[in-house]
Design a protein around this nucleic acid. Structure first.
Lengths: 227, 227
DNA sequence: ATAGTTTTTTAGCACACGATAAAAAACACC
DNA sequence: GGTGTTTTTTATCGTGTGCTAAAAAACTAT
């Protein structure tokens, strides 16, 4: 009874979009095969959204870049423009922005922040990719009909800031940071640096210049009294 | 002869757009009077562009907000969308962003930077205006057809950074900053803070939080050895 | 071969975009 | 009151937007 209900409701949920690409490639039971690879298509879509922003990107820009001939194939595979953008953001986090999560693997908070910011300097000036950061320039300001996208990007930025704050909190507990340190304020400061670097990169600043900014920014790091 | 030629060519130049609003109100010789005030109309246009960005703003959004009934009146008064945006940016610099130029009136470079950044914290969170900074969020990323606007904004940001660099250079000459100070790098750092603050404000950070960021950012200020 | 499933293709929807030609309206000057 | 000038109004233009219904095509399983 319970199993039946659960199974039924689950099937009902998936039936609305089980042919959509979610994580890795979906298992297909028969039917005409896709003429394109979903992951590389997402990479192409990422590049366009990254360069042109959400509102600056048209469906035709996407299909052209993704190697999809017609709009219906795109809608069939990825849902509407907004859903596609979300999938693109996930792929961004797992691809070009993977360095962010990896920075938190550093043994000390200071090394984590340094790795994060120098990684940003590199990632936002990668010659093989668009300048800047899609999370910042994807939709900083937009028309009322795109508010949801703007808010999703703001939420993703906030999530990064939260992770940073928690890492700094832990560093204070561990004694890496002085007891008087304000983790919230410090995390906000480094998030501001991060986002400022994204704007600088979008404006044409060189990789070397951005690394210099990071070096300057790191000088605010609180020193322990006994150091 | 010379006067005639000059007068003629001047008239020719102005004849293409002498009815456009440039700085203050144009002197009109006869003709049907404007049904709207150009400066307040520009203020309304500024608000829309500020909130929605260049590409997120439609002509109909503008006419509605500016109190202009029909598109031709807008085109007649301000030229096309791109020209209107330029005039709006000028009005922004003389209005809500006036604090930027005024910050340079401070007696010391340090006071100038402090005034500039705390001014940014206030201006980007003014409850009576859109969040953030139009120079940053107006067109960070855009479609290929809007590249000129993106570049104009980048140029305006670069101009601010240049002014800051020159002020810091002077401070080094004056002895306010140590001889070993790098004015370019320091100016880039503070410009990054400024732009990061704009992103933070667009994302919903409070005024108080932004002032805290500024206080943290100012701790990098180089100390003289004899201080 | 047939049936079932999925994708692609074809064609087009309703609407919004930036921008403009032509005419009507409202003023100044004489 | 007429003339000249400028703005507003009316009615679009051509193009692009995000999106979709319906049919054809390409596969799997039987």
């Amino acid at each position: 009874m319970a199993f039946g209900l659960v199974g039924w409701s689950t099937a009902l949920y998936f039936s609305s979009d089980y042919n959509l690409v979610s994580g890795s490639e979906a298992i297909m039971a028969g039917g005409r095969p896709r003429s394109f690879d979903s992951d590389t298509a997402l990479d192409r879509a990422l590049e366009v959204f990254w360069r042109q922003g959400y509102e600056g990107t048209g469906i035709s820009d996407l299909t052209k870049a993704m190697g999809i001939n017609n709009a219906p194939s795109l809608y069939n595979a990825f849902g509407n423009k907004e859903q596609l953008f979300s999938k693109v953001l996930d792929r961004y986090a797992d691809g070009p922005a993977r360095y962010i999560r990896e920075a938190f693997d550093q043994p000390t908070a200071r090394a984590a922040v340094e790795t994060l910011l120098h990684g940003a300097a590199d990632a936002t000036t990668d010659p093989d990719r668009p300048r800047g950061c899609i999370t910042v320039q994807g939709a900083l300001a937009c028309s009322p009909g795109t508010e949801a996208v703007r808010e999703e990007l703001a939420a993703r930025r906030a999530a990064g800031e939260t992770a940073l704050r928690e890492r700094l909190r832990r560093a204070r507990s561990d004694g890496e940071l002085p007891a008087g340190t304000d983790p919230e304020g410090l995390a906000r400061y480094f998030a501001t640096i991060y986002q400022g670097i994204a704007v600088q990169a979008a404006g044409g600043a060189s990789r070397q210049q951005l690394h210099g900014i990071v070096d300057t920014a790191m000088t605010v790091w609180p020193q322990r009294a006994d150091a």
